[in-house]
């Protein structure tokens, strides 16, 4: 089984301890309005203009999304096994929604774990419970997103059904796997004092961290020929 990946990034700093590589899996069943990786949403390969950061050359088109076999991916990741071991780092699967490609993940993880590599996942939890249950215990650490708790609000801003996430979280709490809740704070969406209090209450007894809103979140939409959903929403949002 092949997995579709839109980026493999070395030396990521926000995805766990030590020196890590993060694998960004392509495709996500949610459509969060603030998503800053829009190229991670579609499961299809896409063409994207590159931003030509600081460069004089105009941005060229590039294809996002490449298919990997578990073996190829593992061998690419294991090239950095030395510094991962030195620093207590490892690999983090992110996306998109990594668990949407659960089968591929389940084939890849053993190849990494056999070499002693620590593996973590960052998930929205918006996947079928069977996938979630199969995959989560295979990870050393889980970053579990908590975006919104209210069903209507969740649907409004992510187009999803919050009960799927809540059911998975109920499983996670009992699973014995180490995890942290991550709350991406979005101005005007979920960052009021009462929102925050609700998150704190929800996470009682567990680790939780708030992630500040990335003001450049909308930057990549135009490169995909898309419009940032938060554009045109009142100033409070940005």
């Amino acid at each position: 089984m092949k997995g579709r990946i839109f980026e493999i990034r070395e030396f990521t700093l926000h995805d766990g301890p030590g020196v890590r590589t993060t694998v960004f899996m392509k495709g996500c069943p949610l459509r969060c309005a603030w998503c800053h990786n829009p190229e991670g949403q579609s499961f299809e390969t896409e063409t994207m203009r590159s931003a030509a950061p600081g460069g004089s050359a105009p941005g060229a088109d590039r294809t996002v999304g490449r298919d990997w076999t578990p073996e190829d991916l593992a061998s690419e990741l294991l090239k950095n096994a030395d510094i991962m071991a030195q620093s207590g780092g490892g690999v983090t699967f992110s996306g998109g929604e990594p668990l949407a490609q659960c089968g591929f993940i389940l084939e890849t993880l053993p190849l990494l774990k056999a070499k002693g590599v620590d593996v973590a996942v960052e998930t929205s939890g918006y996947v079928p419970l069977e996938s979630y249950r199969a995959a989560i215990p295979q990870f050393d650490f889980v970053y579990q997103d908590v975006k919104l708790l209210d069903a209507a609000e969740f649907r409004r801003w992510t187009c999803g059904d919050v009960s799927v996430v809540l059911d998975n979280i109920a499983y996670l709490r009992e699973s014995g796997v180490r995890f942290v809740f991550r709350v991406p704070l979005v101005p005007g969406v979920n960052d009021s004092p009462s929102d925050r209090a609700a998150f704190v209450e929800f996470a009682r007894g567990c680790r939780m961290e708030f992630l500040p809103y990335n003001p450049a979140a909308g930057a990549k939409y135009p490169l995909l020929g898309r419009k940032f959903p938060l554009d045109g929403i009142p100033d409070a949002i940005r």
């Binding site: 030396f11 700093l13 926000h14 301890p17 030590g18 020196v19 030395d82 510094i83 030195q86 620093s87 780092g89």
Partner: peptide, 22 residues
Amino acid sequence: DSAFAMADGVEKVAHLVKFFIE
């Protein structure tokens, strides 16, 4: 500079230098 926004940014970069030296 965002590398150092997280508390363990210093440690990670230190590991990178150590890796270079080793």
